[in-house]
Design a binder for these strands. Structure first.
Lengths: 227, 227
DNA sequence: CAGTGGTCTAGACCACGCC
DNA sequence: GCGTGGTCTAGACCACTGC
């Protein structure tokens, strides 16, 4: 047999896909499966826990383990640096700072970061290019309190500077689609109204708001994943 | 102390965020941390393994555990049924089958599924509505071999039928943005060229191709997640 | 209350991959 | 080779929750 937890996981998945165990069914307890497969309960636990994290199983103490009825499939997205993403496609990366000024952010941005309406923030607009063609337009608001020293954003993108200096932040991400405004179309060298893939991200360092950024990707951009 | 693996995980994250351990640094071994925290090595292992899965740490046998240098942040997306997603927003869900016919799929679809060029597949076009307004246009190609019995797709959406009858498939997902074609705009009751959020999904049941679907979401649709 | 999963322990062996 | 993480075991106690 020589069963490791990955074998157990595979066998459980096989039984589900083969309709031995159907959505809504309660499957045997960890103890029963451990006995059947001839392994320790911890090994079965590991396998079932992974399947539960993927949304395939639902587990509750005392109630037991069931095959999920409405399998909310969970996919993991990798969110790389723009530079690495472009280089990963085999294209040459370059970067251009378009503007940099202190200003009052739009109310929506201030609200998302939990800052007062009138607060001054550093507003950066920059362009990421792939093989010298515009690929991503970045519109970023930075909380100046997180900038002990102010780097030269002509030389290093805010993205990379933050990663090196305020690493491992938390935050939320939202994905959507939007038609390019006249300005965006001009800067990205696209027809007005082109469909852009938008990544909005708000970032916190523990309880301190750090930045709020909108990345507008030119048509052709895709995010891929596997389930 | 009373440290569980979640406490260990939190403490390690705290040290990273506090710059005690910086990106690229090798952190102490599992054994050393187990000693420091007064827990078994398995407990430390669990904590560090979770952080590695999130992309915060990089682990290699013999080399040890390092704080990731280029933190590819990993976000998990929930991909629910269209119906549940709409109902989850508190809107009334309805569904309309627009067309259903056997036809030859576009070469790109056949290729993605690994089917011969001339193969006949079932082509479905349907509309998902939220509060009686178009929300998602679904364009689906189904491998007829997976349909032992052919359900009435006027009554049950292909999405739900597949979930109940060919559950727990594997596949890949791609997210992108596209301008609505004239047809799409008409069916979704939008101005032509509106930016649509596109989810393309190809699905397999073990080695058998099942379906290839394109879900076009009206503007305003967002996918959210947290890191 | 009693059954189930969630976690911890102490020890062990193994696989990988730097040196 | 040998240090490190990856996993397994057998046993234990606990937390939750359905009955």
């Amino acid at each position: 047999m020589l069963a490791g937890w990955e074998d157990i996981r595979a066998e459980v998945l096989r039984r589900i896909r083969a309709h031995d165990w159907r959505p809504g069914d309660t499957i045997p307890t960890e103890e029963a499966l451990a006995l059947e497969f001839g392994v320790a309960r911890a090994t079965v636990n590991r396998a079932l826990r992974e399947l539960a994290e993927e949304g395939v199983l639902e587990r509750r103490r005392k109630a037991g383990t069931r095959v999920a009825l409405h399998p909310v499939r969970r996919a993991t997205l990798d969110i790389p640096l723009t530079r690495l993403e472009i280089e990963g496609r085999g294209q040459a990366y370059s970067y251009r700072l378009l503007s940099e000024e202190m200003a009052s952010p739009p109310p929506a941005v201030a609200a998302r970061l939990g800052l007062p309406q009138g607060a001054q923030m550093l507003h950066l607009v920059c362009l990421h290019l792939a093989d010298d063609r515009p690929a991503v337009l970045e519109d970023r608001w930075l909380n100046p309190e997180t900038l002990k020293v102010q780097p030269d954003f002509h030389l290093v993108s805010a993205n990379e500077w933050l990663l090196a200096n305020v690493p491992y932040t938390t935050g939320d991400i939202s994905l959507s689609a939007a038609n390019a405004t006249a300005d965006e179309a001009r800067l990205l060298d696209l027809p007005p109204g082109s469909a852009l893939f938008i990544i909005d991200r708000t970032t916190w360092d523990r309880d301190h708001p750090v930045t709020c950024v909108r990345l507008a990707h030119v048509p052709g951009f895709r995010m891929r994943t596997t389930v």
